[in-house]
Design a protein around this nucleic acid. Structure first.
Length: 926
RNA sequence: GGGCGCGUAGCUCAGGCGGUUCAGAGCGCUUCCCUUACAAGGAAGAGGCCGGGGGUUCAAGUCCCUCCGCGCCCACCA
């Protein structure tokens, strides 16, 4: 505890007026210089605590939500470090993918045109970064390599700013260990993991209908879907029954491009009695649809197998309105009798239900909407009638929305629509980053298996969830419900530019068509590769795109396909086996609860495949920041708080305090009042520390005795030595309660409940300053003799030391500052306090002496307060009534109570009800 | 439609396994005080049928059921 004589030369003296200003820069620099947050690679796995830090998306700026959740992780990291573990705490930047592309497009006013050649002389436009100027001119088309250069340039400067902010809030990250999801290391890990998935059959490509964003013109994954309630319109459309069809059981269904009969069709009963209402006297079938423009892609109608209204029609055919295509009426349990008219048209493809029906009923494809979201120029081959073809021509080239308006008019004119379209509100699938509804188009894509099509794998992944500790525990339900609802494998290929390329090439046949089934893989050791620029083994650039040559896979992987590997990326998987062995599976994954279905789940999938293990033992979910109106704070809402502004006004420790008050997993309202409270706490720690440590400077017998004892103690808190110093009941009682605090705070932190640890520490601290210090103050000044003063000062110093340590994970700057006044090494490298030593120091003292003394002092203060007299008012006589046991205790701390309360004469009376009668000294006229 | 979470002082929230820190904290509000660490402080005070209703128990914010309100997750949404 006490420095040796020569060390004391270097100790900062206790300032007369300590302030918080300047502490952040001072200590950030000191920590950087000393490298105290560097990971100690030599430590065995059991002594390591490794953290899978979330790489923030580098697409703009950090907001208070980041400060909030990253602080939570840092608190845990700092506690583990003090508890003796080697903390592995890297930082990553998620800079690949669509968010960066969008930011680059807007920032520079450019768009990527992959057909352009690289322009080595290209310079960013001069108006870059000025949105108003950029918006006024046309976007500049740039080549893919130039575009990627712009992405790299912008993310590099963003990342610097991010690191600056994270340092400012005191994250004890090992800044020598950073990665960016687009850097060579991440691309290599990402491609290698993909190739290993491919090798083991966990990755595959297939041509299939998939969710497609028409704005960004890329496939998207189920995990990136948002349901949004949007207005729509029900159109009730007429499908005419085919003559001679369905009138007899077992009618054969034939269409031009479809030769399957569905399983239930043959069982269709005679369609007469039952087909009332909706089938309009046996000749028409009416369906409700919100997407009438998809009628040209209609391939069937479908109703529930048990629906008596439509049973007679199963196996028959109907003709689509205007387009006049014959389609079968089929049965499928997915059809809901209560929706619309109870019978639906199946289009290729209007929604995911269409895909299910299409697949399970083995229906043909009649595509109308292309990758650009517009109707294709040519109608499906099934549309043969001149009217149908002419009508389609009116839709060609239109967006879905425009085509809908157009076709509604056509149906109205032809009399195939019943009544007015009825407006409804219904949920529609959107890409979470998009603002136009998703379409479903068929395309060739890469997938990684995730249990969506495999019940054994699904169960295995759910089981992985039970092998991890969830904080808070109920969050696991979200993980499980997500997996249970998976409807397909994980689509990882994206038709975008700034991402990790799919590391494959395809041979071209003699016609120049790719041979998809047998991709060419890169040689080990050449990763990362860019198939659009690099050549496959044994080939040269002249063969690219030529018949008999090769072509590179044009796609990149989705950003989650790389960020699902953050544990592997950070821990040296396949690159540093020693590091990997000492840090993987990791100990902790902190993250927000809204990305359980994406980041958390996909990480579990990858670790399950490449390690056969969970990626980490603990997942700590943090909540969101809500604005005062309880809305989620997000950039799109325009209600974000800029962290630098808050840091300027309140300081990092105060901001961290606010963050630490948010319970794990709980959304927290942004409350500026909390920053003030945090700041006040930090100031109080400065002042209390100053008060306690200043006794050291007194030139009296007690001071030298305290010094002598501490020198003898060495590290300061050895059991057996301290009790000899802390002799007074009040002091020992305080140490007793302090021991309880240490136990509680340690327990809470070990369970990731930083908020409880802080609350208890803070609560103890205020009681310590309000009551204990006040009670012990006079004695500490030596008013009751040297021995009593030594006890007071020594126990104050013991408590202060522990409190500074308990606060260190939460308020690292002010804790380091006050620690530095009497230590030469960092509080963050000190050893987390142990309650056993404090208990030994407390001896047989229980909580009672402190509690009784504080209760009496409180009553005396109240008497003065109610009499509207200053607290320094003398009490001529105080009479305390209390139970015998407490009276006995009070008598042992009477001197302290009298001094703190300025009580001249303290009398005691035994009684059941606690009360204090205080007779104040008469007011003296000024 | 299924699931999860939450409803405790005006506000923001604590209240691990039911019983003397269970009715709490901070803010806000009221009053007082420049007290030898702290006036960008400090001391004290008022304020709540712990969402409603049942039940289990000697005893229920604390367990069970139910209802009401709010939030979130999931869902094939014609």
């Amino acid at each position: 505890m006490s420095p040796s004589a020569d060390e004391s030369q270097r100790l900062a003296s206790v300032p007369d007026r300590p302030v918080l200003e300047g502490l952040e820069a001072k200590w950030d620099a000191a920590w950087e210089a000393s490298g105290i947050y560097r990971f100690d690679e030599g430590r065995p796995r059991g002594e390591v605590f490794s953290i899978d830090t979330p790489p923030p998306t580098v697409s703009g700026s950090l907001h208070v939500g980041h400060v909030f959740s990253y602080t939570h992780t840092d608190i845990i990291a700092r506690h583990r470090r003090m508890a003796g573990q080697a903390v592995f705490y890297p930082m990553g930047w998620d800079d690949n993918g669509l968010p960066t592309e969008r930011r680059v497009q807007n920032y520079y006013g450019v768009r990527c045109d992959p057909s352009l050649p690289y322009d080595p002389a290209f310079a960013p436009p001069p108006d870059a970064g000025r949105p108003s100027a950029v918006a006024k001119r046309r976007t500049i088309a740039v080549s893919r390599p130039n575009f990627i250069e712009l992405c790299e340039e912008l993310t590099a400067s963003d990342e610097q700013a991010f690191e600056g902010l994270f340092r400012r809030i005191g994250l004890s990250v090992d800044w020598t260990r950073t990665y960016a999801t687009i850097d060579a290391h991440c691309r290599r890990v990402s491609q290698l993991a993909f190739l290993e998935n491919l090798e083991r059959g966990e990755a595959y490509q297939i041509e299939a209908p998939s969710l497609w964003d028409v704005t960004f013109q890329t496939a998207v994954a189920q995990a990136e879907l948002d349901d949004r309630e949007v207005p729509g319109t029900y159109h009730k459309l007429r499908f005419r029954r085919t003559e001679g069809s369905g009138g007899a059981a077992g009618a054969t269904v034939t269409t031009a491009d479809h030769d399957n009969t569905d399983g239930s069709g043959g069982a269709a009963a005679v369609a007469t009695a039952a087909d009332r209402g909706n089938t309009d006297g046996g000749s028409d079938v009416w369906i409700d649809t919100t997407r009438p423009e998809l009628v040209p892609s209609c391939v069937a109608l479908v109703a529930h197998p048990d629906d008596s209204r439509y049973k007679p029609l199963f196996g028959s055919t109907v003709r689509t309105p205007v387009f006049d295509v014959e389609v079968p009426v089929l049965a499928h349990p997915l059809a809901d009798p209560d929706k619309g008219t109870g019978i639906a048209m199946i289009c290729t493809f209007g929604d995911t239900a269409d895909v299910t029906w299409w697949r399970e009923l083995d229906l043909p494809v009649r595509t109308v909407i292309g990758r650009d979201g517009r109707f294709a120029a040519e109608p499906p081959a099934a549309i043969k009638s001149p009217t149908g073809q002419a009508t389609y021509a009116r839709l060609a080239g239109k967006t879905a929305a425009a085509a809908r308006t157009e076709i509604a008019a056509v149906f109205a004119q032809s009399g195939d629509i019943d009544g007015e379209p009825r407006p409804i509100t219904h949920p529609v699938k959107f890409f979470e980053k998009g603002d136009r509804p998703l379409e479903i188009v068929s395309s060739r894509q890469w997938y990684i298996r995730n249990g969506g099509r495999d019940d054994d794998l699904r169960q295995a992944l759910i089981d992985r969830g039970t092998q991890m500790n969830w904080v808070p525990s109920y969050m696991r339900a979200r993980y499980e419900s997500w997996i249970a609802g998976l409807s397909g494998d994980w689509l990882i290929s994206r038709q975008r530019f700034f991402g990790v390329p799919i590391p494959l090439w395809y041979r071209l046949d003699t016609d120049g068509s790719p041979i998809w089934d047998d991709p060419i893989r890169p040689e080990a050791g050449t990763l990362p590769v860019d198939p659009s620029a690099d050549c496959p083994p044994g080939c040269d650039e002249s063969q690219r795109g030529r018949p008999g040559g090769f072509v590179g896979d044009p796609d990149v992987m989705d950003t989650w396909a790389t960020s699902s590997l953050t544990p592997q990326i950070a821990t040296g998987w396949r690159t540093d086996e020693d590091l990997y062995a000492s840090t993987f599976p990791m100990d902790m994954r902190p993250q927000a609860h809204d990305i359980i279905r994406t980041w958390l789940f996909s990480t579990v999938v990858r670790a399950h495949f490449d390690a056969g293990a969970v990626p980490w033992h603990n997942c700590a979910l943090s909540g969101w920041i809500l604005d005062p109106d309880r809305k989620k704070m997000s950039k799109s809402r325009g209600n974000v708080q800029v962290p630098t502004d808050l840091l300027d006004r309140y300081g990092a420790d105060a901001v961290r305090y606010w963050a630490a008050c948010g319970r794990p997993g709980t959304d927290t309202a942004f409350d500026e009042q909390q920053f003030r409270i945090g700041r006040r706490l930090a100031v109080k720690l400065l002042n209390a520390s100053k008060f306690v440590l200043r006794f050291d400077e007194l030139d009296d017998e007690a001071a030298s005795e305290v010094k002598r004892r501490e020198r003898a103690l060495g590290t300061g808190l050895d059991a057996g030595a301290v009790p000899a110093g802390a002799t007074e009941p009040l002091d020992r009682s305080m140490l007793h309660r302090l021991a309880g605090l240490v136990e509680e705070a340690s327990r809470a932190l070990n369970a990731f409940d930083y908020a409880r640890a802080l609350e208890r520490t803070e609560s103890f601290f205020w009681a310590f300053t309000d009551d204990h210090i006040e009670l012990a103050k006079a004695r500490a000044y030596g008013e009751h003799g040297t021995a009593a003063a030594v006890s007071a000062r020594l126990s104050l110093r013991i408590a202060l030391r522990v409190l500074q340590q308990l606060f260190a994970p939460f308020m690292p700057f002010v804790a380091e500052e006050v620690w530095s006044w009497w230590h030469t090494s960092s509080v963050h490298a000190s050893t987390w306090p142990e309650s056993s030593r404090l208990r030994a120091a407390a001896g047989d003292a229980g909580p009672l002496p402190g509690a009784v003394a504080a209760a009496v002092l409180g009553e005396v203060r109240r008497a003065k307060s109610e009499a509207k007299r200053p607290l320094r008012t003398e009490v001529e006589r105080a009479t305390v009534t209390d139970k015998a046991e407490r009276i006995a205790v009070l008598e042992r701390v009477a001197a302290d109570v009298c001094a703190a309360g300025r009580i001249t004469d303290l009398a005691t009376v035994e009684g059941d009800e606690f009360s204090v009668q205080a007779q104040l000294a008469p007011e003296t006229s000024p």
